[in-house]
């Protein structure tokens, strides 16, 4: 019961983070003006979800996060869901093999996720027959997105772990003392 509560709280936290992340991507101009491309905050969140939660939370994050992102973009509706899900499931599948507690490992996984997600999204958009701005100049933007995604991944772990520690109640530690098992020592 308690585990379900903890999982639900973490899933809720992730979805809330995805909502705020998409809002920041759309409304916060500073990173876009500095880097020339918008920040892509969903892949770092997906890396966190893949390491810390299960398939249900990953699917919900991919579905809702993708829909949030597409709603504030010219993307066809639903196009960002599948790439996020693929990235999340792949990391979740190999999570035992990744040294996830190390910042550099998180950076590398975040870098790969942030590189793969936009590329897969772009492939789906092109498969749907839509014309985009992606040309040779996009390669540079793609590298910037991957790099910033990688850098933001350890940060997202730090922030979400801290938020989860406050949101999710810590388990009660039962003492080993039991009055019925008290050993009464006599003289001998």
């Amino acid at each position: 019961m308690k585990e379900i509560l903890i999982n639900n709280a973490l899933t809720f936290l992730l979805l809330l983070a995805a909502f705020v992340a998409v809002f920041l991507q759309a409304a916060w101009d500073l990173p876009r003006n500095l880097l020339g491309v918008p920040l892509n905050l969903l892949p770092p969140l997906m890396v966190f979800a893949a390491f810390r939660t299960g398939v249900t939370a990953i699917s919900l994050l991919a579905g809702l996060g993708g829909l949030f992102s597409d709603a504030l973009s010219a993307n066809p509706l639903g196009v960002s869901m599948l790439p996020l899900l693929c990235v999340g499931l792949a990391i979740h599948h190999w999570r035992e093999l990744i040294l996830q507690e190390f910042a550099y490992a998180r950076f590398i996984v975040g870098f790969i996720a942030s590189a793969a997600a936009p590329l897969l999204t772009l492939m789906i958009i092109m498969t749907l027959g839509k014309r985009t701005l992606a040309g040779w100049g996009f390669v540079w933007h793609w590298m910037i997105m991957a790099l910033t995604g990688g850098l933001l991944t350890p940060l997202s772990f730090w922030l979400l772990d801290a938020a989860a520690a406050r949101l999710v109640p810590s388990p009660v530690v039962h003492p080993s003392f039991r009055p019925d098992r008290e050993i009464k020592r006599g003289r001998y």
């Binding site: 759309a26 409304a27 504030l72 973009s73 010219a74 958009i125 701005l133 992606a134 933007h141």
Partner: peptide
């Protein structure tokens, strides 16, 4: 202007 496109391959704003 309240928002800009979340994707790098479009040039739109809201």
């Amino acid at each position: 202007v309240i928002a800009r496109d979340t994707a790098a391959w479009w040039r739109t704003l809201r």
